[in-house]
């Protein structure tokens, strides 16, 4: 229950799992504070597309081996081009997570110099994990239209 003592806005959603909702300018000091108080493992950074609200939700997951607690710091940003400051100077693995989210959702991370393509090399379309990307239509128009090799 260490995170509950550290932050007043923390909520326990179930045993050993704590959720903190905050804004993007407070994330950095929160991660720093958690890092200095026993939450030494940055698990992952995930992204959710709330298309009806016009928001992306970014969730920073952290774990403490000492307290056996999972803390999730959640921020919401606008879907249309709002940038987020990078956190890769705090934990180096965040760089790769940000690179993936940039590719799959199109979120821009300010200060991350490695936002080059990751799994999708040379992808020219809308980022595919956005909810307004029509996967089935794309597949039918792309892969199924590639012709078979004709034998003469």
């Amino acid at each position: 229950m260490k995170a509950m003592e550290l932050f007043s806005e923390a909520k326990e959603i179930k045993k050993g799992r704590i959720r903190i909702e905050t804004t993007k300018d407070k994330v950095e000091e929160m991660i720093k504070k958690l890092k200095n108080n026993g939450y030494e493992h940055f698990v992952m950074l995930s992204c959710i597309d709330w298309i009806k609200d016009g928001k992306f939700e970014l969730v920073y997951h952290m774990w403490s081996y000492k307290y056996k607690e999972h803390v999730m710091i959640s921020i919401k940003i606008n879907r249309d081009g709002e940038t987020v400051p990078t956190m890769s100077h705090l934990f180096p693995q965040i760089e790769t997570y940000e690179r993936e989210i940039h590719e799959m959702f199109g979120v821009e991370f300010e200060g991350n110099k490695r936002l080059v393509s990751f799994v999708l090399e040379g992808w020219p379309h809308m980022p595919p994990m956005r909810k307004d990307f029509d996967t089935e239509k794309f597949v039918k128009e792309h892969y199924y239209k590639i012709p078979e090799v004709k034998e003469e």
Binding site: P124, H125, V149
Partner: peptide, 21 residues
């Protein structure tokens, strides 16, 4: 077959790689 229809195979590969028809 790969030697004989090399152009067709290369065309299909390029179509897949570029993601644009």
């Amino acid at each position: 077959k790969y030697h004989k229809y090399y152009k067709q195979y290369k065309r299909n590969q390029k179509m897949a790689f570029s993601y644009r028809l």
